[in-house]
Simulated assay, not measured.
Amino acid sequence: MERVYVIPLRDAKTAPRTKRSPKATRVVREFIQKHMKSDDVKMDSSVNEKIWERGIQKIPPKIKVKATKDEDGSVLVTLVQ
């Protein structure tokens, strides 16, 4: 199963400025766990690089990702170009 999601990162804006990128990474992981119904989520490095692109304080407002669920239940999250 393969789906494309636009994940809003506004929840990570409530975190202190020096902890926003790690919080945004957790928000993406929790969103995918909820919507793909899987606990095994692996994020591609491109997603992490997009979140950290402008540093720890200035995260993007939203991110567009493609989630692919394997037959064993694991989910791979990649950035949509």
Score class of each variant (00 low, 15 high):
Lys19Pro: 00
Leu79Val: 05
Met1Glu: 02
Leu76Cys: 00
Ser74Lys: 04
Gly73Phe: 01
Lys62Arg: 15
Pro8Ala: 12
Ile63His: 09
Lys50Gln: 14
Lys34Ser: 15
Lys42Leu: 01
Gly73Glu: 02
Tyr5Ser: 08
Lys37Arg: 09
Ser45Phe: 04
Asp44Ile: 00
Arg20Lys: 14
Met43Cys: 01
His35Val: 12
Ala24Lys: 09
Gly73Pro: 04
Arg26Lys: 12
Thr18Asp: 13
Lys66Ser: 09
His35Lys: 15
Pro61Asp: 15
Arg29Gly: 00
Glu49Met: 11
Gly55Val: 09
Gln57His: 10
Gly55Arg: 14
Asp44Val: 03
Thr25Ala: 07
Gly55Lys: 13
Gly55Glu: 11
Asp39Gly: 04
Ile59Asp: 06
Glu49Thr: 09
Asp44Asn: 09
Glu2Pro: 00
Lys19Ala: 11
Glu30Arg: 12
Arg10Thr: 12
Arg54Asp: 15
Thr14Gln: 06
Ile63Val: 15
Thr18Cys: 03
Met1His: 00
Val41Leu: 05
Asp40Gln: 05
Lys19His: 09
Pro16Asn: 01
Val75Ile: 05
Glu53Lys: 15
His35Gly: 06
Val28Ile: 13
Thr25Gln: 11
Arg54Val: 08
Pro8His: 14
Val27His: 08
Thr68Cys: 05
Gln57Phe: 06
Met36Thr: 02
Gln33Ile: 01
Asp72Pro: 00
Met36Ala: 03
Ile51Asp: 02
Val65Trp: 06
Thr14Phe: 11
Ser21Asn: 10
Val41Asn: 01
Asp72Ala: 06
Gly73Thr: 02
Ile32Thr: 01
Pro61Trp: 11
Ala67Glu: 03
Lys42Ile: 03
Val77Ile: 08
Arg26Ser: 10
Pro16Leu: 04
Lys58Leu: 13
Ala15Met: 09
Thr25Phe: 04
Glu71Cys: 03
